[in-house]
């Protein structure tokens, strides 16, 4: 098996797991959102990797009938995903601001202590 054929997928998995680790292991809420963003981008890379065709060009029609185009479908799906991803990031950040107003902290451990009254 040629490793270059799977290099993109393995980098996707590396980035995805870096984001996943940040989401579950870090207590800071903004850090969790950064992790979520890295996770999201790795999915974009997976989709765009699959759409590539060797010798292909961007899917914008040209007069030359022998042109090979890359697959436009993953591009459309990821275009939608990027914009939706930013909308969810904005909502998550608004929640972080509200949590900071209510608790005075954005650390998960401190919020847990305040809720259980052990501080």
């Amino acid at each position: 098996m040629n490793w270059i054929e799977h290099y993109n997928y393995w980098m996707v998995i590396l980035l995805m797991m870096l984001g996943f680790y940040t989401i579950i292991a870090r207590g800071n809420l903004v850090k969790k959102i950064i992790g979520l963003n890295i996770f999201q981008t790795s999915v974009f890379i997976l989709f765009i990797s699959m759409g590539k065709i060797p010798g292909g060009v961007a899917p914008i029609l040209r007069d030359d009938p022998t042109t090979v185009y890359s697959n436009p479908l993953p591009h459309v799906l990821i275009l939608t995903a990027i914009v939706v991803g930013v909308a969810t990031t904005a909502l998550a950040l608004a929640l972080v601001v509200r949590i900071n107003e209510a608790y005075g902290t954005i650390e998960e451990d401190d919020i847990h202590d305040l809720d259980t009254g052990s501080l």
């Binding site: 759409g51 590539k52 060009v57 961007a58 914008i60 890359s70 993953p74 591009h75 990821i78 275009l79």
Partner: peptide
């Protein structure tokens, strides 16, 4: 990777 629209978004 030829995804110009995705790139500028």
């Amino acid at each position: 990777l030829d995804a110009a629209d995705v790139s500028f978004t």
